[in-house]
């Protein structure tokens, strides 16, 4: 009986870890991780280069006076000029950094623990389902050259479902 329970627990853990890896693949895609930096600047592009124009984080993660995120980024994408936009455009706080100081993604386990420490299960599902900046990742608009920005590796529905599965499995981390 004990062995049977252990098998069930291990299977649930494996399913949860598999769900986490799906989530992780999205979190570390450029549309997400470019604003979850560990430095005082955001990144841009699929090559995740430093944001141009000397943009910096600022005390509230929204840039500084006269050079804030809102200096360019509006509440919606501006496809005619190639500027991405969404409500309350800003960097994630440093406490939610998913990179190291050399702009390399943190190990999956570290990001997992960070996510767990910031939001409980229900709030994480809601965040992934409804937050404007999360939704933007699947509607990132056009680049200045008119081509579409790339999307995360999962659909938004798949991402939310993976989040639900991970939460249901007890939010296991690698």
């Amino acid at each position: 009986m004990l062995q049977f329970s252990l098998v069930i627990l291990l299977a649930a853990d494996a399913a949860g870890l598999a769900a986490w890896e799906k989530i992780h693949s999205v979190l570390t895609s450029p549309r997400c991780i470019n604003c979850h930096t560990a430095t005082n600047y955001p990144q841009q592009g699929d090559d995740r280069h430093r944001h141009f124009a000397n943009v910096i984080r600022g005390k509230q993660d929204k840039g500084v006076i006269a050079l804030s995120c809102a200096t360019c980024h509006q509440a919606k994408n501006a496809d005619s000029t190639g500027l991405p936009g969404a409500h309350n455009w800003q960097l994630a706080p440093l406490s939610m950094k998913w990179q190291d100081l050399n702009d390399r993604p943190l190990p999956s386990a570290e990001i997992c623990r960070s996510v767990k420490s910031h939001l409980d299960g229900p709030h994480l599902v809601k965040h992934h389902e409804e937050e404007a900046l999360v939704l933007w990742a699947w509607n990132p608009g056009r680049r200045p050259d008119g081509t579409m920005r790339t999307l995360p590796p999962l659909t938004h529905a798949e991402f939310v479902e993976a989040t639900r599965q991970w939460v249901k499995a007890g939010r296991p981390c690698p």
């Binding site: 006076i65 006269a66 050079l67 804030s68 809102a70 200096t71 360019c72 509006q74 501006a78 005619s80 000029t81 190639g82 500027l83």
Partner: peptide, 9 residues
């Protein structure tokens, strides 16, 4: 808000 008018439709 100081805004770059060249990129705001």
């Amino acid at each position: 808000v100081a805004t770059r008018s060249c990129v705001v439709p």
